[in-house]
């Protein structure tokens, strides 16, 4: 019990003192995960919207795959990216393995299916409502898709936040492709895993508190956004 209390004490001291090492780790975590979410948005939003709007053979299979990929185990994703990026792999020449870039790629792979699948659902619902009106206005398909994405913006932001939640809390993929190298690829989750095994509970718990706070903040933001959407647009 003393260890427990001491660990909490250390944790809050580190946070309150804005310990530079802790800040660096938190900063890298945010940078990697936010970049990954941005990449996932660039791929997942249009991909989900296209799946919602266009009918083509094999579309059902793609949708099932996408939904299944939402549950892709991070370690498996990490392993696949590792194989691609390792020296002998097809993308080995890029020299990305054990860099933040590799971690961004791994998290993008994890987050894109979430963004795409949630986008598909949101846009499909809107499309059912808007389709005739947009065709009556002779809106071209590409503009129609942009309209659907914009009008679904509150739900889609929620999807992006869900993706961010998955990215920031994930450990399996980034530890494999990043290698948890001090000051280079060490993020909150990998540090917690490492410091816990070393018995350095203060730093681990401090990071844990920050992660939990982020999780609460993300969920509060999701709820706030859907309320704003519901109140201002009935959506």
């Amino acid at each position: 019990m003393d260890d427990f209390g001491a660990a909490f004490g250390d944790a809050f001291r580190l946070i309150l003192a804005a310990d530079p090492e802790l800040l660096a780790i938190v900063g890298l975590s945010l940078r990697v995960s936010l970049t990954a979410v941005a990449c996932a948005a660039l791929i997942g939003l249009p991909l989900g919207a296209l799946l919602a709007v266009y009918r083509f053979p094999g579309r059902g299979v793609v949708v099932v795959l996408l939904n299944a990929l939402m549950g892709l185990p991070p370690v498996v994703a990490g392993l696949l990216i590792y194989l691609l990026l390792s020296r002998a792999g097809p993308l080995g020449e890029l020299g990305l393995l054990f860099t933040p870039g590799a971690m961004v790629i791994a998290q993008t792979v994890l987050v894109t299916p979430i963004v795409a699948a949630l986008t598909r659902q949101t846009v499909a619902d809107l499309f059912a409502e808007y389709d005739e009106q947009l065709r009556s206005l002779a809106v071209p398909r590409a503009s129609a898709i942009a309209t659907l994405i914009w009008d679904g913006r509150y739900s889609l932001l929620t999807a992006l936040l869900a993706g961010f939640g998955r990215a920031i809390a994930e450990v399996g993929a980034v530890i494999i492709v990043g290698g948890n190298i001090n000051h280079v690829t060490r993020v909150m989750t990998t540090t917690i895993a490492l410091e816990t095994s070393k018995g350095n509970l203060g730093l681990a718990l401090g990071l844990g508190v920050i992660l939990l706070t982020l999780a609460v903040a993300v969920n509060a933001a999701v709820m706030g956004l859907s309320n704003v959407g519901a109140q201002s647009h009935g959506a």
Partner: peptide
């Protein structure tokens, strides 16, 4: 249309 389709704007 019978049920107006208004954009969320």
């Amino acid at each position: 249309f019978q049920k107006p389709v208004l954009l969320r704007r």
